[in-house]
Design a protein around this nucleic acid. Structure first.
Lengths: 248, 248
DNA sequence: ACCTGAACACCGTTCAAGT
DNA sequence: ACCTGAACACCGTTCAAGT
């Protein structure tokens, strides 16, 4: 390679890729996790994807934990801002369902968010504005406090089921206690021993798809999520109307 | 070392430790995770703890995933069997609070259980007998199915809060959206900027410890867990009494 | 046939050597 | 002063060599 060729190549490379910055690192990390799963996301693999040497990443994130913090903020930032409307239940419901759609787009996000030791700025902002919806809906600060706890990670759209549904991608975001029922009853030639050993689970599995669809797990994740969400919102509203306070 | 000494030492070693078996491997793994946290549990470290060569473990568990499955079963096996009694709400409540106590003893267990791709035998048995409590309480199979989904991982005593409370050990089992509020307001000299940026969170934090205790996070995890649990059980009972069915 | 040391293909991060 | 290749201390698991 001549000196001129080398210069050309260097120029070409520097023009064809924008110089590395935090934003680009985070976006590449999110994209990599989306396509290959969170387990395959390593600093080395990410560097390779960005066509830089691994150590180059450490100029933009202090370490892998900070990378994961940044990815969390990027994902939480995708959640729709709270809408306007007179009905606080509708507003909070719409926002949480938006969060759920975001988590479904990024199946790895639930586990990453749960693994953060503290809330990131975007999460704090999300929690603050969501608390505001409850407060403006007439719930006392006391009740809102316990409501936020009761919602727990469901606030961010987590399914919080026990096991990943068969269909879910890689690093299970949604899961399925009654669905494990379904697996027991529906997977291949149903072992008669299982239905005998777990009679109640077998019964639940039957209840889940005696309708039109008999294929697959048989559980409608969206239905189950909204069932629990509405049950909780119902309960919150009832407590508000009763003027509930924690006794202390 | 003489030949006799070598024989003695070999004999001593073989008598002072029972020969390795699956049971002993699992118990050592649980103990190691309890004391050092789940992140420090590696096949190599576990082998070292048992005073064997790493490869010796692979005769008793196929791989690390199977080790984690076994640890899950060991922990879930610690949950009290369902008690007897006419009040299904009391029975299911007591059982779930027992599960919660078990998880508090093994702070790593929640994350390990969540990471299982499918239910282990002990989990299936737990879910089956818990579904049985609901069924015998008069809930239809249909309602019980959705109830199990709505409970999600809370069935196994998971706190399901967003972030680990400051006090919780290592691999966060319990967490705290409103508690993150508390951290914001309570940590050190409260940055006035934070309360302005997150006014609702600041308000919740204030609501959480305007009582007697002002120290620490200020949240009573046990209270929050039971608040949500009872809210859900209330809702289930109400649906049962209304003869609720999913429309399909 | 059984057991196991060395090796393989990784990992996050440190650090010193090179420019 | 900046950048980065090599190195460090790990990891789960394979595999072939040794008994």
């Amino acid at each position: 390679m001549t000196r001129q060729e080398a210069t050309q190549r260097a120029t070409q490379r520097s023009t064809q890729r924008t110089p590395l910055n935090r934003e680009r690192v985070l976006r590449a990390a999110v994209a990599l996790a989306d396509t290959t799963g969170i387990d395959a996301l390593s600093m080395r693999r990410l560097a390779q994807e960005l066509d830089v040497v691994p150590m180059a990443l450490y100029k933009h994130v202090a370490n892998k934990e900070e990378l994961l913090d940044g990815m969390t903020d990027a994902v939480v930032g995708e959640i729709d801002p709270p809408g306007a409307g007179p009905d606080w239940r509708h507003v909070v419901r719409a926002r949480i369902l938006s969060a759920r759609r975001v988590l479904l787009r990024h199946p790895w996000a639930a586990r990453v968010i749960e693994s953060r030791t503290g809330p990131t700025p975007a999460v704090l902002e999300y929690l603050d504005s969501t608390a505001g919806i409850f407060r403006e809906g007439g719930l006392s600060a006391d009740l809102t406090h316990h409501v936020m706890h009761a919602m727990g990670s469901r606030l961010l759209g987590f399914s919080q089921e026990l096991f990943a549904t068969p269909g879910s991608g890689g690093s299970g975001e949604s899961a399925d206690p009654a669905g494990s029922a379904d697996s027991v009853a529906a997977s291949g030639p149903p072992d008669p021993g299982l239905a005998e050993r777990y009679p109640y689970i077998a019964e639940l599995a039957a209840a889940s798809h005696d309708g039109d669809s008999v294929v697959g797990g048989g559980c409608d994740d969206q239905f189950e999520f909204e069932f629990a969400l509405d049950l909780l919102l119902d309960g919150f509203e009832r407590l508000r109307d009763q003027g509930w306070t924690s006794a202390r």
